[in-house]
Amino acid sequence: MAEQMRVEVVYALPNKQEIVVIGLDEGATVLQAIERSGLLEKYPEIDLSKNKLGVFAKLVKLETVLRHRDRVEIYRPLIADPKAVRKQRAAEGKVMKKGAGESAEAPASS
């Protein structure tokens, strides 16, 4: 009889995070964990051929073998590519602000 391990499967939505804790046999894969979690039925927009997957923020494939206490993460597609947005801002001459920015004037001293 195969040893059991516990794994979390996570899908983050804009307003909440779905976390499902499941038990699997040793040697189970990312695909088996996702199928067992029930998230594919609950969220039909998840497409395993398009959505990226990770274990503790490291990208993995469906056939990756899991270990006890792993956290499988299903990532939603990006709405906008961050690199493209930065290029567009640069082309338009906009400056990204950090903190107060350089345009803040120092208070006058008497």
Rank of each mutant, 00 (worst) to 15 (best):
M1R: 09
Y75N: 02
T64S: 07
G99L: 06
E102P: 06
E45P: 06
L40P: 03
P107Q: 10
Q17K: 12
A100G: 11
D25H: 12
M1P: 11
R36F: 06
V9F: 02
Y43S: 03
Y43M: 05
R76K: 04
E41F: 14
Q88D: 11
D47T: 10
L24Y: 01
I46Y: 02
E63K: 09
M96D: 15
V72R: 01
G99H: 05
E105W: 12
V60N: 02
L78C: 07
K50G: 05
T64Y: 07
R76E: 01
L31E: 13
I79V: 15
V65L: 10
R89H: 08
L39R: 04
V85H: 08
V10P: 01
K58F: 05
K52L: 10
K98R: 13
L24E: 00
A106V: 14
K52H: 15
D25Y: 09
V55K: 06
Y75L: 05
K97V: 15
D70Q: 06
R71K: 13
H68F: 08
A28E: 08
Y43A: 05
G23C: 08
I19K: 14
L66F: 05
L59G: 04
R71F: 04
A106T: 11
R36P: 08
A90P: 01
L78N: 05
A28Q: 00
I74V: 09
S103R: 14
H68D: 15
E18T: 07
A100C: 10
P44V: 04
I34D: 00
E105P: 04
V21D: 07
S49W: 02
L31C: 06
G23D: 14
L48T: 01
G23A: 14
E73Q: 06
M5P: 01
V55C: 12
K94G: 03
K61L: 12
G38C: 04
V7R: 00
V30F: 02
G93I: 08
K87L: 13
N51D: 07
V95E: 13
R67Y: 12
M1A: 15
K94H: 02
L62V: 02
K16W: 07
T29V: 06
K87M: 10
L39Y: 00
Q17W: 14
L31F: 09
V72W: 00
D70L: 01
Q4M: 13
A90M: 11
K52C: 11
T29M: 05
L40D: 03
I22V: 08
I46G: 08
L62W: 02
I46R: 05
V60F: 00
D47I: 02
Q4F: 12
K94P: 03
L40F: 09
E35I: 12
K61Q: 11
S37M: 08
K52R: 14
N15K: 11
A33F: 00
S109G: 11
A100Y: 08
G54A: 11
K42C: 10
S109A: 15
R86E: 13
P44Y: 09
A106Y: 08
K94S: 10
S49N: 14
Y75I: 03
E105C: 07
E8D: 15
V55F: 06
I19C: 10
R76N: 02
G38N: 03
V95T: 15
L13C: 05
D25M: 09
L53T: 00
E102S: 09
V7N: 00
K16C: 06
E63I: 04
S109T: 15
E8T: 05
L13M: 13
